[in-house]
Amino acid sequence: SEEEIREAFRVFDKDGNGYISAADLRHVMTNLGEKLTDEEVDEMIREADIDGDGQVNYEDFVQMMTA
């Protein structure tokens, strides 16, 4: 549901600035027990970053979650 997606976005957007940065993503993945290299984190950001601004905004996140 849209509310679940919004809630998930809030979990990833640690600093609440409306964007998921590589640092935000790394933090959440580490908490989930996933040890990722910087390259892996950057690749995840690139794949999710639809508009190419280097971070994942809510619209990018929705597209990723509903793809």
Rank of each mutant, 00 (worst) to 15 (best):
S1Q: 07
S1M: 08
E2N: 06
E3G: 07
E3Y: 10
E3N: 12
E3R: 10
E3C: 12
E3M: 10
E3W: 11
E4A: 12
E4F: 11
E4V: 09
E4Q: 12
I5P: 00
I5W: 15
I5N: 01
I5T: 02
R6H: 03
R6C: 05
R6G: 01
R6A: 03
E7K: 12
A8Y: 07
F9E: 00
F9N: 00
F9H: 00
F9A: 01
F9L: 08
F9P: 00
R10L: 06
R10N: 04
R10H: 04
R10G: 04
V11W: 08
V11L: 11
V11I: 10
F12W: 07
D13T: 01
D13C: 02
D13Q: 01
D13L: 02
K14P: 08
K14T: 11
K14Q: 07
D15N: 11
D15W: 07
G16M: 07
G16I: 02
G16T: 03
G16A: 06
N17T: 12
N17P: 00
N17K: 09
N17E: 04
G18Y: 02
G18W: 02
G18V: 00
G18T: 02
Y19S: 05
Y19L: 11
Y19G: 01
Y19T: 08
Y19R: 13
Y19V: 04
I20G: 01
I20H: 00
I20E: 01
I20K: 00
I20L: 03
S21V: 03
S21G: 04
S21Y: 05
S21T: 08
S21R: 05
A22T: 13
A22I: 15
A22C: 11
A23H: 13
A23E: 12
A23D: 13
A23Y: 07
D24G: 03
D24A: 07
D24F: 03
D24Y: 03
D24S: 04
L25F: 14
L25K: 00
L25W: 06
L25T: 02
L25D: 01
L25Y: 02
R26Q: 12
R26F: 09
H27R: 08
H27K: 11
H27Y: 14
V28Q: 01
V28S: 01
V28H: 01
V28M: 03
V28K: 00
V28E: 01
V28F: 03
V28N: 00
M29K: 01
M29L: 15
M29G: 00
M29D: 00
M29A: 03
T30M: 15
T30R: 14
T30W: 10
T30N: 14
T30G: 09
N31F: 13
N31K: 13
N31V: 12
L32R: 04
L32D: 01
L32Y: 13
G33W: 15
E34T: 15
E34K: 15
K35M: 13
K35Y: 09
L36E: 02
L36H: 06
L36I: 08
L36T: 03
L36N: 03
T37V: 03
T37I: 04
T37F: 04
T37E: 02
T37Y: 04
T37K: 06
T37L: 04
T37H: 04
T37D: 04
D38E: 13
D38G: 08
D38I: 12
E39Q: 09
E39P: 05
E39Y: 11
E40N: 04
E40K: 11
E40M: 12
E40Y: 05
V41G: 01
V41P: 01
V41H: 04
V41T: 03
D42Q: 06
D42S: 09
D42G: 05
D42W: 12
D42M: 08
D42N: 11
E43F: 12
E43S: 14
E43H: 12
E43L: 15
E43R: 15
M44R: 05
M44T: 02
I45N: 02
I45M: 12
I45W: 06
R46L: 07
R46A: 08
E47Y: 13
E47D: 13
E47P: 03
D49V: 13
D49A: 13
D49W: 08
D49T: 12
I50G: 08
I50Y: 11
D51S: 13
D51G: 12
D51A: 10
D51E: 08
G52R: 13
G52P: 13
G52F: 09
G52C: 10
G52I: 11
G52A: 13
G52K: 10
D53G: 07
D53W: 09
D53A: 07
G54T: 04
G54H: 05
G54C: 11
G54Q: 05
Q55S: 08
Q55L: 13
Q55Y: 14
V56S: 01
V56A: 03
N57A: 13
N57C: 13
N57K: 14
Y58I: 14
Y58Q: 02
Y58N: 00
Y58C: 02
E59Q: 06
E59A: 08
E59G: 05
E59P: 03
E59H: 09
E59K: 07
E59W: 07
D60A: 15
D60T: 15
D60K: 15
F61L: 09
F61E: 00
V62D: 00
V62L: 15
V62N: 01
V62I: 15
Q63A: 11
Q63M: 10
Q63R: 14
M64N: 04
M64K: 14
M64C: 08
M64E: 02
M64R: 14
M64Y: 08
M64S: 03
M64V: 07
M65D: 01
M65Y: 05
M65G: 01
M65N: 02
M65H: 03
M65I: 11
T66C: 10
T66Q: 08
T66M: 14
T66N: 08
T66R: 09
T66P: 03
T66S: 09
A67M: 03
A67F: 01
